[in-house]
Nucleic acid binder design. Structure first.
Length: 478
RNA sequence: GGCCUUAUCGUCUAACGGUUAGGACAUCGGCUUUUCAAGCCGGUAAUCCGGGUUCGAUUCCCGGUAGGGUCACCA
């Protein structure tokens, strides 16, 4: 726990502009885990101030992503809370109130120019190869702000800023980093730069976790905190996540996928949380597989990384496999069955999946690749494939007949993979080479070059079907 | 381009200024073995470059190089 003079309040504040990806969710879980660790409050807030970019259904999508991971928020648009509402579009009154305060203090003025006029000034400056600063073009007699033209922040002291970030340490920006920026747009909605300051203030947010793309606009935030004379929350900058090429920062435009895709591919939410936790943070020790409780326990802002890195889906596959191993029998069955066609939903098939999933990475791919088809697909036998290395046709037939005898002698109540293994291994050991027995049986049951072992196959198929398939193999050879 | 920022195995990372530079994934080899997996054991592999400070730099400072971010009435 931190020194607790103040309750920790964090928030995840996405904008509803379509699906969210790994990067967004990573930000959410760091804010969430920090609140959890400190018995604090985690808020979900929707930053819907850009009506043009809004995509219907985004909010539900965001909520679904978080819930899938097991992340609960204490306050949010769906459940309300002491600082409701939690959508910025419903908080316009607050922004107006603080805008008025800024105007009165001489920190804000109405911008009489149209967007095109400002753009023209910008282009001209660019052509003349000098930096464009709006503050060099301030109107001499700004009109009274009536809410239909933009309201701009007025930079009073042109100065450098220096501040401390809990992850990055000392950060700074030169005087040209801060210009007169728009607080409220001509459509009446506030900009991010203004709105989040007011919301964080009113909601009592103590720690802001966000990506490093906001470092450059931090002087704007600092200037606002100063102008409004309010305490600023602690700033926690998260390292960037690089895309698959390892070059550009991960983003929607360059191929970041919908976070829910991972659910659709059959990754466990626990594995996903574990995976995300390590993109930008690592614990003091060397453990890599963490449950959500362990994550909360171990989390510390001090261990958040500074530099960015890519993420490695091969490692996600491994993490997923390790989490499957941790599942209790009941949960494992529930998880596995959710991915199987009805007729494959039998307990005995589970070990095959847990043992062989790493071949495919995720369970969806495994099923799609026909790894389990042997169960209901009649094998196509080829004599030469049934015969093991140095044995011949006749020998193989007689071996299979011996196997048949053993199977038939096994009582239905004794018929399970452990017993089948004991009986068949005993028979196999009596030969000069175990493969003489085991190979043709495996092939007779699966018809595949690569398959699970014959014992588990025989068990899953059942005594009757096992006998049928071995007989077929014999007839192909005879 | 201006400003900001980052830099350890192929990848993700660990290392109070003193370590044979550690771990994980991937890869390679061995064991096991009826196949493919799995499992177990082992191997290969890294401090961007150049200066400086220091008895001693992966670590601190400066410069270079390379990467990333940002320069909106988007967040």
């Amino acid at each position: 726990m931190e020194n607790q003079t103040q309750k920790v309040v964090t928030r995840f504040a996405p904008s509803p502009t379509g699906f969210i990806h790994i990067g967004n969710v990573r930000t959410a879980i760091y804010a969430w885990v920090y609140a959890k660790k400190n018995n604090g409050t985690f808020i979900l807030r929707i930053e819907d101030t850009d009506k043009a970019r809004e995509v219907e259904g985004s909010i539900e999508h965001i909520e679904k992503c978080l819930k899938w991971l097991g992340i609960e928020w204490d306050e949010g648009p769906d459940i309300g809370g002491p600082n409701a509402p939690y959508k910025q579009s419903e908080r316009l009154k607050s922004y107006k109130k603080y805008a008025q305060i800024l105007i009165e203090k001489g920190y804000a003025y109405a911008d009489p120019y149209t967007e095109e006029e400002v753009e023209a000034m910008r282009v001209k400056a660019d052509e003349e190869k000098r930096p464009f600063l709006y503050r060099d073009h301030r109107p001499l007699n700004p009109p009274v702000w009536d809410g239909t033209i933009p309201l701009r922040f007025k930079v009073k002291d042109i100065k450098s800023y220096e501040w401390t970030d809990l992850v990055r340490g000392k950060l700074s920006a030169g005087p040209e980093a801060l210009d007169d920026f728009v607080l409220i747009k001509s459509d009446g909605y506030p900009t991010y730069n203004f709105a989040h300051i007011i919301d964080d203030l009113e909601m009592g947010v103590t720690h802001i976790m966000r990506g490093d793309e906001f470092i450059s606009s931090t002087p704007k935030f600092l200037a606002l905190y100063e102008a409004l004379e309010i305490n600023r929350p602690k700033l926690v900058t998260l390292p960037p996540i690089m895309g698959a090429d390892g070059k550009k920062k991960l983003g929607k435009r360059d191929g970041a996928k919908d976070f829910l895709e991972y659910e659709k591919e059959g990754y466990l939410p626990e594995a996903m949380l574990n995976f995300l936790a390590f993109i930008g943070w690592s614990p003091k020790g060397e453990e890599e597989i963490l449950t959500s409780g362990e994550f909360i326990n171990l989390f510390d802002i001090k261990q958040i990384h500074i530099s960015g890195g890519g993420y490695n889906e091969e490692k996600l596959d491994w993490i997923n496999k390790e989490h499957i191993k941790l599942l209790k029998e009941y949960d494992l069955e529930k998880y596995v069955f959710a991915w199987l066609p009805k007729k494959l939903q039998i307990k005995k098939i589970i070990p095959i999946i847990t043992e062989r999933i790493s071949k495919f990475g995720d369970i969806k791919t495994m099923v799609e690749n026909g790894e389990l088809d042997f169960f209901y697909k009649e094998p196509v036998y080829e004599a030469n494939k049934l015969i093991y290395k140095n044995t011949d046709k006749n020998k193989t037939v007689s071996n299979l007949k011996e196997v048949l005898e053993v199977i038939q002698m096994t009582d239905e109540s004794q018929y399970n993979k452990d017993n089948i293994k004991i009986f068949l291994m005993e028979l196999a050991d009596s030969k000069e080479n175990r493969g003489q027995i085991l190979h043709p049986v495996r092939f007779a049951l699966s018809g595949l070059d690569k398959s699970p072992d014959p014992f588990i196959l025989a068990d899953i198929l059942g005594k009757k079907e096992t006998i049928t398939r071995i007989n077929k193999a014999i007839s192909v050879l005879s």
